[in-house]
């Protein structure tokens, strides 16, 4: 099953923290506007202002483990994009309506804007960057190119991740079934007929 995320065998521990000395710099440069008086590191542990303490967690993404310090309020989507620089996963609505942020968590498709990073420790997360096997594209990726199943590409990572799961779920028995089970991912360019064709193609290849 090519869509199955592989457990990490190599650990790359890196802390992806955005700049921490920002507040102080801003304060010295800007006299007039209202500027934060105290220097507070980006995601440093704090309980000030009712914000829960940031914590170091480990996320397993595309077979690699990443140590990342996040506040509990950080979504998995923002952890991927802003902390791990995995910008293939897109933010379209940030409220679970468009599907652009779909990723696989332990093989299931979920909307990464609707789950918190801290809730996904110990899970195997797969993003669009982790789908290909080196230079060899996943059958769903191949099918999307072959069937011209995208235009702007803004929803495409989410469509592809959703399609991988849709095929594994067995919801590709007919075009009508694909249309229904791929309706959680909006394509505003509206390549829907081509998306259905791509998913059907890939399903034949993956499921045999």
């Amino acid at each position: 099953m090519p869509e199955s995320p592989h457990p990490a065998t190599t650990h790359t521990r890196r802390t992806v923290l955005k700049s921490t000395a920002v507040a102080a710099a801003g304060a010295t440069l800007v006299p007039a506007p209202a500027v934060a008086a105290s220097s507070v590191p980006a995601a440093a542990p704090t309980t000030a202002g009712g914000v829960a303490e940031a914590m170091e967690i480990t996320l397993s993404v595309n077979g690699r483990k990443h140590a990342v310090t996040v506040e509990p309020r950080v979504t998995l989507l923002d952890a991927l994009r802003e902390r791990l620089a995995l910008t293939g996963t897109k933010k379209g609505c940030d409220r679970g309506e468009c599907g652009a942020c779909t990723v696989l968590v332990d093989g299931e498709r979920i909307k990464s804007c609707l789950t918190l990073a801290v809730m996904r420790q110990g899970s195997a997360i797969t993003t669009v960057e982790g789908l290909a096997d080196g230079d060899r594209l996943h059958p769903v990726q191949e099918a999307f190119i072959r069937r011209d199943a995208f235009q702007c590409g803004g929803c495409t990572p989410g469509q592809i991740m959703s399609a991988v799961a849709c095929i594994r779920e067995g919801h590709t028995g007919s075009e009508e079934e694909i249309r229904q089970w791929m309706s959680g991912n909006i394509c505003r360019c509206a390549c829907y007929q081509n998306i259905v064709a791509a998913v059907a193609d890939a399903a034949r290849e993956v499921r045999g």
């Binding site: 910008t87 290909a132 590409g153 495409t156």
Partner: peptide, 21 residues
């Protein structure tokens, strides 16, 4: 002709304005 930007778009490698570091 198949889209020449297909590969970067299906692998998440295409950098959109909010993705540029």
């Amino acid at each position: 002709v198949a889209r020449v930007d297909g590969r970067v778009k299906v692998t998440g490698a295409a950098r959109y304005p909010a993705d540029d570091p």
